[in-house]
Amino acid sequence: MIRVLICDDHLIVRQGIKQVLAEAEDVSVVGEAANGPDAIQQARAGGVDVVLLDIAMPQRDGLDILKALKSEFPKLPVLMLSTYPDRQYAVRSLKLGAAGYLNKSADSEQMIDAVRSVTRGRLFITPSVAELLAGAVGAGGRPLDDDKPLHERLSHREHQVFQLLAAGRSVGEIAEQLVLSPNTVSTYRARVLEKIGVRNDVELALFAVRMAQLG
């Protein structure tokens, strides 16, 4: 029996995933977590064969949780789930040690297949993600991270802060929306400005407009 821990902050999503996995006789959901610390605590308790982890999580985003899990449990397969376009986070997740990446729009058969695959030690990727991986490596296996557009070098949380700053939100408003302290948001803001190469929020907003125009 494959023992699954589901980590997603939305109860209705966790229930939906449980219903999907219930279709497989060899899969059992043994735990649910609504946040990263809870997921790590349950992983420490043992009895988990694979973690299904949502990327968009409160407090600590899914990529941060992934790094923590792989640091403490390097052999525990983590299957990332997301509603974001594959190109935004798939390659980044796999580089951080995810055993697979699956969009939440996937059908039940594909999700069950993904759980089985990563539990057997195989990497699960869809054809679209495979294309992204191929594009992420240049001739001779050279990573192409340095060739990526500036805004695509941001972490998940940095990208969230970037979008909200570009929309004219204040540090306080962003902190309230993302359930973070203002100091933490200010730290993310400083990282965003540095990575994009702008000096203030006005230049950041202009940069966002240019990216939108480029599609």
Rank of each mutant, 00 (worst) to 15 (best):
F124Q: 00
I125N: 05
P127F: 05
P127C: 03
S128D: 12
S128F: 10
V129S: 02
A130Y: 09
A130M: 14
E131Y: 01
A134L: 14
A134F: 07
A136L: 00
A136P: 01
G138F: 00
G138D: 12
A139T: 13
G140T: 00
R142D: 10
P143L: 06
L144H: 10
D145H: 11
D145M: 11
D146S: 08
D146C: 04
D147Q: 11
D147S: 14
P149E: 05
P149Q: 01
R153V: 01
S155W: 06
H156M: 09
H156L: 09
E158L: 08
H159Y: 10
H159G: 09
Q163M: 14
Q163E: 14
L164P: 03
L164M: 12
L165P: 04
G168P: 08
G168L: 08
V171T: 13
E173I: 07
I174M: 00
A175C: 02
Q177L: 15
Q177I: 14
Q177A: 13
L178Y: 02
L178C: 08
V179D: 15
V179K: 15
L180P: 04
L180E: 06
S181P: 03
S181G: 11
P182Q: 04
P182I: 12
P182H: 02
N183K: 15
N183E: 06
N183A: 14
T184F: 01
S186N: 13
S186I: 03
T187W: 15
Y188N: 11
R189W: 10
R191I: 05
L193M: 01
E194V: 01
E194I: 07
G197L: 01
R199E: 13
D201Y: 01
D201P: 01
V202M: 11
V202C: 03
